[in-house]
C-alpha cells in the first residue's frame, strides 16, 4: 500500500496531477448544478408573477 502511495518517489507529482484533475472536473460539475438550479428558480418566479420580463434572467 505504501509503495502504491509513494509511486517510486513520484507520489507528489502523480497525486497532485490526479487531484487537480478531479478537483477541476468536480468544480465544473458543481457550477453546472448551481447554475441550473438558479435558472429554474428564476424561471419559476417569472412564470408565477408574469410581470417585468426583463432583467429577471440576468446571469449575475
Amino acid at each position: 500500500m505504501n509503495e502504491f502511495l509513494t509511486m517510486g518517489g513520484y507520489g507528489f507529482y502523480i497525486w497532485t496531477a490526479y487531484g487537480v484533475s478531479f478537483l477541476v472536473l468536480a468544480v465544473d460539475a458543481l457550477v453546472n448544478r448551481l447554475q441550473q438550479r438558479k435558472t429554474l428558480q428564476n424561471l419559476a418566479q417569472f412564470h408565477q408573477t408574469q410581470h417585468n420580463p426583463t432583467n429577471i434572467l440576468d446571469e449575475h
Partner: peptide
Amino acid sequence: GDAFRIIYVHVPA
C-alpha cells in the same frame, strides 16, 4: 518508472 502514470490524465486532457 511510475512518473509516466501522469499520462493517464495529461494526454486525455
